[in-house]
Write a protein that binds this DNA or RNA. Structure first.
Length: 393
DNA sequence: CTTCCACCGGAAGTACCGGTAA
DNA sequence: TTACCGGTACTTCCGGTGGAAG
């Protein structure tokens, strides 16, 4: 009986507290620890820029560069939070907004999310962007303090939606009487700034901070510090932590990945009823993480993107790689087999680019001279079987 | 040096959906 | 209710283009 199964799970989980985890949240990607090892310099730089807010001045806008998992988000949240706490002690009017523009990826939603941090109620849809902007300005001036806006992963947003909003935000102070806005932009891609409107570029980059990647040793410190609080004593050894750090260091020192690895390894150990986390658990975690990412990506794909992926898988299995034109004719057959009206080639070309960006396939535009310009589509060998089983239409 | 293939990818527009505001 | 808003998924049209072949 289903109820029995569920009862049993609840029973066993509630009865004996985890033998592995003391406090799992500490390994969660959104958790901000009390200290951020090896980011002291970056914290100091950012704090020195923002702290003038406590004297009632507008801080410079800041651009933060660095690869994924180098602590950019954590440092930005940490500093803004600390200064907000100080500000409320000193009765300074200070608020901050944090928006991840990859998750919140349209102009309306970004602006609405920023505006809401001032206490405004903005509906999820239905009103004009200019109206949201108007209300935001009005609310700010009524309040009259300093609003620090953190825009995370802006490179994704700009690539998708352009720099209109950035342009507007950067010049928002001209529309304000009493209140002031400062922007902290965070980007993984150093080159993205080059494509920005020059006015946005100079204004946003008043100050710049670069976050270097962590090396294996630094990752080890970070993991060690978190593991102490997250795991029950004696569950994880320094060797296993070092192994995790090593894996992540190979991936350009991505601390978030290292923490994910540690957390999943712990979960696997717990599921298996082990009393210690071993290197084997970490290896399994690494696979599970990648598998999860792929399944997640594939299942949320729109119908025709799945059909295209299906066609690409079949084509690659047969020939190793293919051009846009080849993929298209395979896709037309696939679609018809499933009883769907095929879309145009223009659209399929776009879907191929989208699939490439998600990281499910490789699609590179190449010119083959006399034989035209096209995208060459491939799938990494180790991914093909996984994808094959993940795509269901 | 020119030609010309097989597409690329921007622009503008359509249809639909779920939502708000008055 | 009606007019309007933004997001998503798509179409139509079309000027461009890298580089092997001639």
């Amino acid at each position: 009986m289903v109820e029995d199964i569920i009862d049993e799970i609840i029973q066993s989980r509630l009865k004996k507290r985890s033998r592995i985890f003391k406090s799992k949240e500490i390994l969660h990607p959104d958790y901000i620890p009390e200290t951020l090892p090896h980011r002291e310099n970056e914290i100091r730089k950012l704090a020195e820029i923002i702290v003038v807010a406590l004297r009632g001045e507008r801080p410079s806008n800041v651009l933060i560069y660095g690869l994924t998992g180098t602590g950019k988000t954590a440092v930005a949240k940490y500093v803004t939070k600390k200064i907000a706490e100080k500000a409320s002690m000193l009765n300074a009017k200070f608020l901050y907004a944090y928006v991840n523009t990859r998750k919140t990826d349209t102009t309306y939603r970004v602006l609405a999310s920023i505006a809401r941090t001032t206490g405004l109620r903005i509906p999820p849809t239905g009103i004009a962007i200019s109206e949201v902007y108007r209300r935001y300005i009005q609310a700010l001036d009524k309040w009259g303090g300093l609003h620090v806006v953190v825009l995370d992963e802006i490179d994704y947003y700009v690539r998708k939606g352009g720099d209109d909003l950035l342009y507007k935000l950067v010049r928002i102070n001209e529309d304000l009487e009493k209140a002031r806005v400062a922007i902290i932009g965070i980007t993984n891609d150093i080159n993205f700034v080059e494509n920005l409107d020059p006015r946005v570029k100079s204004s946003l980059g008043e100050e710049e901070i670069v976050f270097p990647p962590y090396n294996a040793e630094q990752l080890r410190d970070i993991l060690k510090q978190r593991a102490e609080k997250a795991f029950v004593e004696g569950v994880i050894s320094d060797d296993v932590i070092a192994y995790c750090a090593g894996l992540a260091a190979r991936e350009h020192g991505d601390a978030r990945r290292a923490l994910d690895l540690l957390r999943i390894a712990g979960e696997i150990a717990e599921r298996e009823g082990a009393s210690k986390i071993t290197v084997e658990h970490v290896k399994k975690a690494s696979i599970e993480l990648e598998l999860g990412r792929i399944y997640q990506a594939v299942t949320t794909l729109p119908l025709h993107a799945k059909l295209v992926l299906r066609a690409v898988i079949d084509l690659v299995k047969k020939k190793g790689s293919g051009t846009t034109g080849e993929v298209y004719s395979w896709y037309v057959k696939t679609a018809e087999n499933y009883g769907y009206e095929p879309l145009t080639q223009r659209r399929i070309s776009e879907i191929l680019t989208e699939l490439d960006m998600i990281g499910l396939i490789n699609a590179v535009v190449v010119s083959r001279g006399r034989y035209g310009k096209t995208k060459i589509v491939k799938i990494p060998a180790e991914m093909i079987e996984v994808l094959d089983s993940a795509v269901s239409i």
